[in-house]
Design a protein around this nucleic acid. Sequence first.
DNA 1: ACCGACACTTACCACACGGTGAGTATAGAA
DNA 2: TTCTATACTCACCGTGTGGTAAGTGTCGGT
Lengths: 147, 147
Amino acid sequence: MSIDLHKHREIQQKLAAQEPLDPRVEKLVNEVIARVADKWTMIILDVLAEHGELRFTQLGRLVPGISQKMLTQTLREMEREGLVVRTVHPVVPPKVEYRLTDLGLSLGAAFCGVWIWAEQNLEKIERARAAFDQRTKPEDQSMSRSV
Amino acid sequence: MSIDLHKHREIQQKLAAQEPLDPRVEKLVNEVIARVADKWTMIILDVLAEHGELRFTQLGRLVPGISQKMLTQTLREMEREGLVVRTVHPVVPPKVEYRLTDLGLSLGAAFCGVWIWAEQNLEKIERARAAFDQRTKPEDQSMSRSV
DNA sequence: ACCGACACTTACCACACGGTGAGTATAGAA
DNA sequence: TTCTATACTCACCGTGTGGTAAGTGTCGGT
């Protein structure tokens, strides 16, 4: 549930030292990050963490920009990873409910570290970006630098 | 540097409760995740955390699959976010060194939570995936699926 | 008989991402 | 003179990702 500080230190040391982590772990982490980092997964995780159990259309309404296709797709992937459970009620107008598993909840908790980091370093990042743009942009060229 | 457990709890509570986080933070988090989650950023962060200061080609060698284009691009983005510093030595064969900033280091530390999570839940995820594939794959010739 | 609700699935399409390979600049080595 | 090393930039191109819109199936309401 909560971050284990011993583990934390240990891995920090591994990062600081040359000790490579288990390659399986590294691969998994990359996969997890890739999965979680897409446009919708974190938002859905967030909404689900906030609202508990939700139906497909409710979820769609709570994640404004999303298309049905992406909602289904993301939810499927999250289900596959064991982050959400999908409960089908075989009733006349279909009723499907989605809810985070313990795993999903714990992923949310694990990401707290990143949230905290972002929260604490928001200003720093914005300053870094501004400074970078400052020292990069002054060339009056129309370089297409899309975000 | 290390994760603040008070903050951690606080945010967990916010996640559990309905309290939304500062939208700026949420936006930033999504951006950070999106940035960090690309194919190369985390790997570079990792390599840099392990080796300290590195030159362009050294980095390229330590991140086997990467193309020059992607290395440059990723490095630039990381520089913009203030995660790395780029030091140019105006010598005859160009010499440029890259090194993590405190911010970059702290991001690595923040991601420890996710690493730990992945490490601790590796089996669970693989089992979830296997189970999901199991119950999804058995599609034989018949198109009708009996749930 | 027709419509709408729900939870999807499918076809199509545009754009962005990432790879490849070439080009650029400089100076010392061969 | 040509080659090599370094740290890039640029043009081109194929794939993949995500959006739009329409279709599917069932049943209850009108």
